[in-house]
């Protein structure tokens, strides 16, 4: 028994330690930072200082007087200015739209791979993850060339639009470009969990459904789709959450109007150097995602056992 417990700790210890050091502790530091004052030259207002005369470290604040170093004003600012809320909404909309489009594109693809002969499947999956072999930024930059006004893609689209009397439209630096590249970047993350799920489906169930009177659409909607929901949720989480916090894509292809909440957070930490407010934005984003996940769980849990 003791050996067993030792083995458990040896196996789970390193990842736990890693998560503690690089996730739990930084999150706690950030949560604390959200309640602190910004420093005079950016960052955080120091809590302690090295006295140049004595060379000793001394606390600048009085532990009894919390108001000296803790404040709610960063949160007040977030809730008072609607621009932040609007940016939240916009980011959720972008991430949500990205997720839905990824799902619509990935589902048929994953289904086809799962139904193709076994010997071809590995190759097809390899092709799905092939883009990962080149650098993320290079892939986004190549979209800038494709969508740019000198690119053949934009030129041909505008040529077609010109014939029917519309345009020319600007593709790069637009909402369209942001969604397009977000979908491109995240698509494999939707395909893989869906494929992993669909590949395991028991084909006998579809035969049984057909035998019992279900047509092709009913077989999909009543059998395949509900059984694939775990894959759908996994894929949706893998796409939605990174897409929500994405700043590189809107930075590069979104122009001035295309920014998302990730850009603002990055701006707070790197450009404005307002760490407390950047922390507030980060925390609010995390809370919003958690609430959304909680809501999804509640909806999914509804009492289906007694339904007929």
């Amino acid at each position: 028994m003791r050996n067993n417990r030792l083995a458990k700790w040896l196996i789970s210890g390193p990842p736990l330690l890693y998560l503690l050091l690089f996730f739990a502790i930084p999150s706690a530091i950030m949560a604390f930072a959200a309640f602190r004052f910004p420093g005079d030259y950016g960052g955080l207002l120091p809590l302690m200082n090295v006295n140049p005369d004595t060379g000793k470290t001394e606390l600048l604040i009085n532990a009894g007087n919390y108001a000296d170093f803790l404040t709610l004003e960063n949160f007040t600012r977030f809730f008072q200015e609607p621009v932040f809320f609007e940016l939240f909404l916009k980011s959720f909309w972008y991430a949500g739209l990205t997720t839905v489009i990824c799902l619509a594109l990935a589902y048929p693809l994953a289904w086809l791979i799962a139904r193709s002969p076994k010997k071809h499947r590995d190759l097809l999956v390899l092709m799905v993850i092939l883009p990962f072999w080149s650098n993320f930024l290079i892939r986004v930059y190549s979209w800038m060339i494709i969508l740019g006004p000198q690119g053949y893609f934009a030129k041909s689209i505008n040529a077609v639009l010109g014939v029917i009397g519309i345009g020319p439209v600007q593709l790069l630096f637009s909402h369209f470009a942001v969604i397009l590249v977000l979908v491109y970047v995240h698509l494999p993350f939707m395909v893989l969990p869906l494929y992993a799920n669909l590949e395991k489906h028991d084909m006998n169930l579809l035969d049984a459904a057909q035998d019992l009177g279900a047509n092709a659409w009913q077989r999909f909607w009543r059998i395949t789709w509900p059984l694939s929901l775990p894959g759908v949720w996994a894929g949706a989480a893998l796409v939605f959450i990174p897409a929500l916090g994405m700043f590189a894509v809107p930075d590069l292809v979104g122009g001035t109007d295309g920014i998302m909440i990730g850009n603002l957070i990055k701006q707070q930490f790197l450009d404005s150097r307002d760490w407390p407010f950047g922390s507030v934005l980060s925390i609010m984003l995390t809370l919003a995602v958690l609430m959304l996940a909680g809501l999804a769980t509640l909806i999914g849990r509804g009492g289906k056992r007694n339904a007929l």
């Binding site: 028991d202 006998n204 169930l205 035969d207 049984a208 459904a209």
Partner: peptide, 11 residues
């Protein structure tokens, strides 16, 4: 209608 060898009940 068929009763399948594996039953094929919808899980």
């Amino acid at each position: 209608h068929t009763v399948f060898q594996s039953y094929a009940l919808f899980p």
